[in-house]
Every structure is written in C-alpha cells, then in structure tokens.
Nucleic acid binder design. Sequence first.
DNA 1: TCAATGCACTAG
DNA 2: TAGTGCATTGAG
Length: 847
Amino acid sequence: MSLALDFISPAAAPAADRVTLFADVILPLPLPRLYTYRVPFELNDNVVIGGRVIVQFGAKKTLSCIVAAVHETPPANYQAKYILEFIDDAPVVTQPQLKLFRWMADYYMCTIGEVINAALPSALKLSSESRIQLHPAFSREENEYPLTPQEELIVYALGSTEEGKALTFTEVGDLLGITSFHKVIKSLMHKDVIFLFEHTADKYAPKVVKKVRLAHHFVSEASIEQLFNSLSSKPKQLDVLMKYLQRVPVYQNEHSNQNGIEKAALTSSPHLSASAVNTLIKNGVLEQFDVIVSRFPLEDEPTAQLHFTLTEAQTTARDEIMAHFGEKDIALLHGVTGAGKTEIYIDLIRKALDGGGQVLYLLPEIALTAQIVGRLLRVFGSRLGVYHSKFSDNERVEVWNGVLSGRFQVVVGVRSAVFLPFDNLALIIVDEEHESSYKQYEPAPRYNAREVALMMANFQGAKTLLGSATPAVETYYQAKQGRYGLVSLTKRFGEAGMPDIELVDTRKAREKKTMHNHFTAELLGEVERTLGRQEQVILFQNRRGYAPVVACQDCGWIPKCTNCAVSLSYHKHSHELRCHYCGYHDSMVTQCPACGSRAVKTQGFGTEKIEDDLKIMLPQANIQRMDLDTTRAKNSYQQIIADFEKQATNVLVGTQMVTKGLDFANVSLVGIINADSIIHYPDFRAHERAYQMFVQVSGRAGRKGKKGKVLIQTSDPTQVIFDKVIRNDYVEFYNYEIVQRHEHGYPPFMRVIKMTVKHVEQGLGEQAAILLTQELVDRLGRAAVLGPEAPYIFRIRNFYLQEITIKLDRAHTALKWAKEQICAAMDVVKDQKEFKQARLVADVDPM
DNA sequence: TCAATGCACTAG
DNA sequence: TAGTGCATTGAG
C-alpha cells in the first residue's frame, strides 16, 4: 500500500483491498440448508463463529441465528442479504458443539435447525415481534381517510405521536379480540396512519435483588448522630435505622456500607414497618440500588469432607475404571442398586477437575433429586451447575453462560444438558444409562442423550463412564466385546443384602377367592406385618388414574377419546374421564348414553384405586400416592419424598416414579401389584424393560443393613423373565436375552430405524405407508423392511398411524448409505400429490 | 364478477 | 416454519 493511501480512511479504501465476508448461518427452523448472508464491511471484525446475528429471512421475518461458517465466496446464483445486527462478541455456541450438532442432524435424520432449536434455551433464541407505531406525519384532525371502528381503536391505543407508543402484533390481536388483524394493519399502513418495524430484544433478564444502604453523606459517626436526633420523633424510622446499623457495622468500617443489605431483610421483618423503610429512601437517608445476582446461590465453600474414604470395593472399582480409561474411552460400571456408585462418581469427577477439564454428569429426570444435588453441591460448591427441565428459561441461560465463562466446571443435568457449550470435557458420566428417558421422541431431534454423550466425548477427547444396575443389552454387549471397559460392583454398600423376591399367583388366588380387591392375601398380610414393625412399604402399579376403562354393564358401551383410539381412564379425584395421550377430558358418565342403563362400572385399576382400596383396608396407615397427577406442581414431588423420608407416610403407591433412584433406609417391602401389564408389550425390548423395571423397584427394598422383601403379583408365575428376576443375576438375564436378539436380528446385532406415517385420513395414511414400504424395499431389500403395520394405539391426536421397522447392518458406511436411501424413499412419497398431508417421521434407534 | 379459501413454493 | 402468490371454488 502506498504512503498516500494511508491518509484515506479504511471505509474509502479501493474495492480491491476490501475483503467481503459471507456468513453461513443456522436458522432455528426445520430447513435442511444453511443460508448465506453478507457481512457489512465495517463490521468484518464482529463476525464470530458460534455467535448470534439477526438477519432478515423472507419478506418480513427477522430472526436470530447462529453463525456456522465465515468465508469469502459469494453465492453464485443470488444476491446475499446483509446481516442486520451482531448480538454477541463471543461465541454462545462452541466449535465442538457445532460439530456435535451437525453429527446429530445427520445421525438422527433431522435438520440442524431442529437441533439448534432444541439446544438453545429459548431466551437465547431472540424473538422477533413485529410492532406498529403511529406515523410521525399522522394527525387526527387532518386525516383524509375515514377510519373504521377497529382502526380507531388501534389509533386510540397508540396514543399520541409524541408518546411514540408501540404495539406488537399480538397486542393488536388481543385489543381487537380477533386473530386476523393483519388486514386492519395493512389498511392503516396504506392510509399512512401507522408504520411497521421489527423489534428484536434479548429476553434474558438477569435476576436482580433490591438492596439499600445509607446515603453516603451520612456515613460518619457525627452525621449519623445528627440523623438520629432529627428522627427522634419517628420511632419506626429509627427502628429501621437501628436494624440497619446492627447488620452493617458502619461505625467500625465505613466501607461495609458499600454493599448494603437486601431491602427485603428490612421490609419483611415482622418488627419493622415497610413504609418506614420507603420513607427513609424517599427522604434520601437510605439509598436503594440493584445488584445482579446468580440464581444459584453460591454455597459456602465445600463442607463435606473433600476426601471421604471409599470402601475397599469402591476403591477397587474406581481403580479398575481408571485402568480401563488408560486404554479405552468408555467404561461401564455395572453396580447393583445400593452399591454406592455415587461415591465413585464423585471421586472420578474430582480427579477430572484436578486435571483441569470439564465434567458432565447426566441423570434421568426423576433421579435428579434435591438429595443428589445437595450432596454434589456440598462437595463441589460453586463450581457445580444444575440443568433441570423444571428450571425456568432464565435459569437455563445462566447455566449456559456459566459453562461458557468457566464458572461451572461440573454440570449435573438431564437429557438436554448434552447441549451445553462445553469445549474442554474430560469426563462424562451417564448414570442409569439404560433409562429410556434419555431418548427424546417428540419433537425432532429424536436423540438419545447417552449416544450423544458418547459422541461428544469422542469429539473432545473425554472419557465416558456409563453406570447402571441393569445395563442396556446393547451396552453390556459392547462391554463383553471389549469395546467398553467393564467394571462390576456386586455387593451392596454397608452389608445390606439383596432382597428376597417372591411371586404370588393371582390366578390361583382368584380361583380360591382369596383376593381383596387387587391384593392377594399374601401381599396384604405382608404389608400389615411390615407396617406393624414400623417399617415402610412401596407399592408399584404401572398405571395412573383410578381405572383405565369404564364400561356399561348392560350394553358394553365404553367411553373413548374423540382424538385417539383409546378408552378414557377414570380419575376419581377430579371425577373425570381422561385420555392419557392427548389430554382430552370429559366429566364422568353415570348413565350409559347408548342404552340408558345406570350400570356404568370401572374396569381395571390404576394407582388411584390402589390408594383408595388400601385406605379402606388399612385405615390406620398413612398412604401417599406418587404419579404424574400428584406431582404436577413444581414442588409436590419433593414434598412427597420429604414426607416419606420423615416417615410421615407409611405406604407410597406410585407409577414408574417410585422405581427410580429413591433411597429410603426404612423401606423393607416392595409390592408389584400387576406384573402382567409390564411384560405384555409388543416389541423386542419388552423383556429388557420388564426386567429392568422389576430389578429397579426391587432395589428400593431393604437398605442400610435391613434385608428387604419383594412380592410380585402375576397371573402367570412360570414366565422365563421371573426366573431371572428372582435370581437377581443380570448376567444370566443378559445371556438369555442376547440369544433372542441374535436370533431375531435386533440390536445390538442390527440397527433399527422406525418410520411412522401419520395422516388424518386413515385410508390415505395406509396408502402412503404402503408406498413408503415399497420404496424402502426397492432400495434396501425385502429382508430389511418390516411392515407397514398399525400400532396397537392406531390413532393419536387425530392422526392415524402406520409403522414400518427397518433393520440395518451395524457397519458405519452402510448406515450412511441406508439413511440416504430412506430419505430418497421419503421424498418419493412426499412428492406424490395425494400424500402431501402425510407426515413421515424417522426415529433412529427407537426405544 | 369478486372474494374467500386452499395449496405449492421458497426463503439467501 | 411461515408468508406469498396463484388457482380453484363459491356467492351474488
């Protein structure tokens, strides 16, 4: 560059020297492509890969999206639009994450936009809401066009031009009470009354605490004394002041005033008057200020012993895991319930942190309790972040940013925690790795957090520890094959023995007429004896509500859901009939609408009925129910657990929820009311699921030195699966199951992709499914395709369903090819005009 | 004849 | 996904 040019500002430099940058962005929409936008030259330095930008997409939408790539190649066939705004000057999505998201889109056959959508807390996805404002040139008096009443209403709401008030489209809709308000807006724009603009605002609001402190000119002994004198006739204000000085030693240390105290500490104190506090603020004695605080209060530094000792068995297991990590990236810790896996995890996490890496500790939703979080907080203090689905969006953003900034080096979280912006992972722990709640069904991405975690670890060079008492057959197979290190912990912690498991034949009991409602004499007697010993009972029934079916005894009429092909369940507490698939509900019928009979009775039983019956049979016992219906409120789950822990309740009746991770010392009996409904399930994982469920529930019985008992009620005790459960030998179960899987060609030997065709019209859905099957068979071969078949529940939310199961070879390259074939087959169906309404869904590795 | 509604297309 | 533009259908 010549000297002369140095005097010219960069903006005016000749075009040849200007670098024009383009950014490929990921839009948060289910679109298969990235879109290319142009970076305004003067903002070249602002582009960050992984940062958010605002762009215009289509005619009027503005969206925030993530920059995935920056380059200098202008698009060949079109003019790129400019990026409108840069939101971040540092990435909110890290490079390893982008890589992972791409892999997920690929593997789970969805778009990267869908992945981003699932990954980002919605407060990081900016909302663009169109807003309208009065046109500066508009005046009410000199208005040449007459306005309709609706238009008048809007103009009135917008106030005067000077006020510059704005309304969002939603607000306009609310104001007019209609949804089709665009016409009104259009007309107003046409008449030059209003103009439209896009307003994009960052929704993340940090948590703010109001604090107060003494106004600075009172911070000296002399002035405080003066102040006291002037307030001598205002006792209430004096009280407040005294309290403040008591809490903040301004006399001893003037600087202590700087931090003040929380306003709430003064206003909510029962002895002080809130209005006195406000008067002091108004008169300038106290000043109020805001402080941004964390939503996760920093625990005082770790209080638990940092170096608690592991038992001999735990130490051995820990050492074996470490040894495996020397050669392998993945290890499976197969430890029976109550073997003390958590201590081993904590020990490993600590080691990983000492090495300077990040740690992700995944738990299924229901296992992530206050108990475990509290324990981890005591060990890791402020370095621990918690990511839970019951958290508010702001809280999630805070964890997200905490991981980015390095404030959180360990995160304990549920499925979606795999999306957090780690870039230096050393260790991932997937506890209860067999859990089906790691798999997301709806909407896309239909991912399994365990598999995503393994891939993430692979990308970042981290080690992964999978833990379970009943590993997934696939996982155990990998370990047996030597691909994962295998470590077993077979002894319970603290010498607690494994519970005795007994089967009770309900068919025989029915014949002998010894059943009390749904309880056999054996189970009821055992419950009574247990309560008599002041010990606690857990009863498991895998169905919520009072009864799954209601039927007319005279004509057989059964109330069904209007949107789904299921009968409605009766819920007694609300006296309603409910659909468990779509949320439809109706009041309970007392008279049959078909024949007029009053003999309408419930059939079958759910948790609510068990609770009800038990209350009648055991009036002295305190019975609590735990299922989706009783835990819907934010803290009700914790409350039920706390009550049971305090032994305020003696019997806990519940669904799946009671099977997971609860650890109560005084529970010595677990009853499974109806095992049949768990076993009879029409898919290849039925046995595995049943086995896992029985063993997990059984694990709740007997801890801390007490031997527990498990009673399983079934109408057919001869089934193979019970034999495995009773002997409590996972390996034996595995050896049996793996043969079945091999014989029938299921995972881990084959890979399964489940296709679902949904259509509002049954016939069209079936035809579309037949065509899809045909296309799949043509491409993948007859042997690889099963179906189409209507599932047991063939209609959900007004969509008729058809399922096709595809079985594929495990080879990686074959898989990629097969997915391309599947996409091609789906395209063929979608291109058919008559199937435009059909929805095709691919679920990779369904559970 | 015009308006309302449905559907395929495409966004950079 | 959502907005747009075109075509088809229906009401007067």
